[in-house]
């Protein structure tokens, strides 16, 4: 009995030690995106900002379909999970199977509540642009709640992009991509010009 108890205590201690160790040595976060130019540049934007300001290692995972992306957003397996995505309210209403309200702001409130309750995902403050889809919509970074628990600093960092990309700025990003510039370079140039990194 005593041996069993001691073993349990040791396992408990080692679990604590390994969790603490994870926090010290660094864990990788995963940003998920669809394979569109816009998706790529915004995911690079988030990855660069987090990495440059916190040192956290970031890996971007691309998906062909929204269904695959949301499956990864629910996964707990290291090899397939994503922790952060960029989403707009039009697509989110479709995911939530809800009808559009009378304004994008109202849609934002509706999908924010749905995602938090049903998907355990938190919407952060919107980037500012509204022209990413065929109807007006609001885009923002989304983070899993469990990630938020372990990385409480992330909202403070990512909210530096809140309102920082208006429609004009977003069109300039798209134009650079259409001209053949790499999404990572486009994102880095923007962040540097904004003095965010």
């Amino acid at each position: 009995m005593i041996t069993r108890l001691l073993s349990l205590i040791f396992v408990g201690l080692m679990l604590i030690q390994n969790n603490v160790c994870d926090a010290c040595v660094g864990r990788t976060l995963y940003v998920g995106t669809l394979q569109s130019n816009e998706g790529k540049v915004m995911s690079e934007m988030l990855a660069l900002l987090i990495n440059e300001r916190t040192g956290t290692s970031i890996q971007i995972r691309s998906f062909e379909t929204s269904e695959q992306l949301y499956t990864a957003l629910k996964s707990t397996k290291e090899e397939e999970r994503v922790d952060i995505i960029v989403e707009d309210t039009a697509q989110a209403l479709s995911i939530a199977q809800q009808k559009a309200g009378t304004s994008p702001d109202q849609d934002f409130i509706a999908v924010k509540a749905f995602y938090e309750k049903e998907l355990n995902v938190v919407w952060l403050n919107p980037f500012g642009y509204t022209a990413n889809s065929t109807q007006p919509s609001i885009s923002a970074p989304l983070i899993r709640k469990d990630v938020l628990t372990n990385f409480p600093l992330l909202p403070r960092v990512l909210n530096k992009l809140a309102g920082a990309i208006n429609d004009k700025a977003f069109q300039a990003l798209k134009k650079a991509l259409d001209a053949g510039d790499k999404p990572k370079n486009v994102a880095k140039d923007f962040l540097k010009k904004q003095k965010l990194i």
Partner: peptide, 12 residues
């Protein structure tokens, strides 16, 4: 040199 407090502390 990068001086950055851990962002993973649940309690600050």
């Amino acid at each position: 040199i990068f001086l950055v407090p851990s962002g993973q502390n649940i309690v600050d």
